[in-house]
Design a protein around this nucleic acid. Structure first.
Lengths: 187, 187
DNA sequence: TCCTTTGCAATGCGACTGTATTGCAACGAC
DNA sequence: GTCGTTGCAATACAGTCGCATTGCAAAGGA
């Protein structure tokens, strides 16, 4: 085996460049050449690591997903052992919300991907499973295992995220809304 | 003035074709030629009515907005005079939610436009104003003029819409979540 | 009747797209 | 050493993009 290169790492580097392009110029600006330029590599190399553009998109989408999961895990970890349910739920929500500029960029990418996958139903199942899992987890933290409340909270968070990205709500407004909802759920 | 043609109507026809293309193949498939083909007209004609693609997009976006406003108005009208606040709010929410296939298509288009405008901040103010207005209106219907509750309800609705489009929630689930939230707000 | 304005079709242009192909340097196995 | 595999660059190609230009038919006003 000649010339050892960490395949996954290269792919991730390229995916990162893709996300930078998408966050700044929208997903429709994502092309092999743009991504290659952003990554500082040749277009041929991008082609070497992703046989098709769609493969690259799918991989990038997965990177976003994993990265978000990691963030959530870290946030939970940071709370220490046996955190109060409300604090835990709030940490989950604020972690997923696009509150700083970095996660705003991620959010824009995720949003772009969402309408991208709306036409390609292939990736829908994974998405669905993730949400169901999240609802179940949150429900376990709510008084009475409130599944409907958990689903509502998640939807509310998602909507807040959209309004944050769109600039309709400020961060303070969003957090106020979130806390009000937690007041209702943990009453 | 020769050959009188209803300019606005033609533009709306073209915008309709655009939305059909966008709903079915995504916004990145929207091109002058595709839209023209979908509308059953020549590409030259599309160019005749919209000097640039961006002008066409902007117009279509506006059509979506107006159409949604009309739908809301009709739903309110249908409730008759002096409807109970909760019924009115619920009608507003269910009208905006993508519950049937037609409004699902609209929702997909709106979602695509959202990430489209995320990069073009020009249209943001109009969006912001619409949301603020809606929050104010709903707050007036909630007990105590609850502004935060109204903002939360709107965000929840938006999130439900996304999950409906993504297939994560079924219609029944979404409606259950909505009604539970109304229970909390009108308690 | 001519003439100007308008509606619309057709074509061309340069830029850009995704992908296939080709070539070559670098390295490990033998 | 040599051989084959791999990493990567460069180029070619057919197609599509948005947009500009041109031409012409139709319809009032003069």
């Amino acid at each position: 085996m000649p010339r050892k290169v960490d395949h996954r790492e290269r792919r991730t580097q390229i995916a990162d460049a893709l996300m930078r392009v998408a966050a700044e110029h929208g997903l429709e600006a994502v092309s092999l050449r743009h991504v290659a330029a952003e990554a500082g590599v040749s277009a041929g190399m991008v082609q070497h690591y992703f046989r098709t553009k769609d493969e690259m998109m799918t991989f990038a989408l997965d990177v976003v997903r994993v990265r978000s999961e990691v963030r959530v895990g870290a946030a939970v970890q940071a709370l220490g052992p046996d955190p109060a349910p409300r604090r835990l739920v709030r940490a989950l929500m604020t972690t997923l919300l696009p509150l700083d500029e970095e996660s705003r960029a991620d959010g824009r990418v995720a949003l772009a991907f969402l309408s991208y996958t709306a036409v390609r139903p292939a990736t829908a199942p994974a998405l669905r499973e993730g949400t169901t899992q999240m609802v179940g987890f949150i429900a376990g933290l709510l008084p009475g295992g409130d599944e409907v409340g958990a689903a509502g909270l998640l939807a509310l968070m998602e909507g807040l995220g959209m309004y944050l990205l769109g600039g309709q709500y400020t961060e303070e407004q969003a957090l106020r809304v979130l806390d009000a909802q937690l007041d209702l759920l943990f009453r």
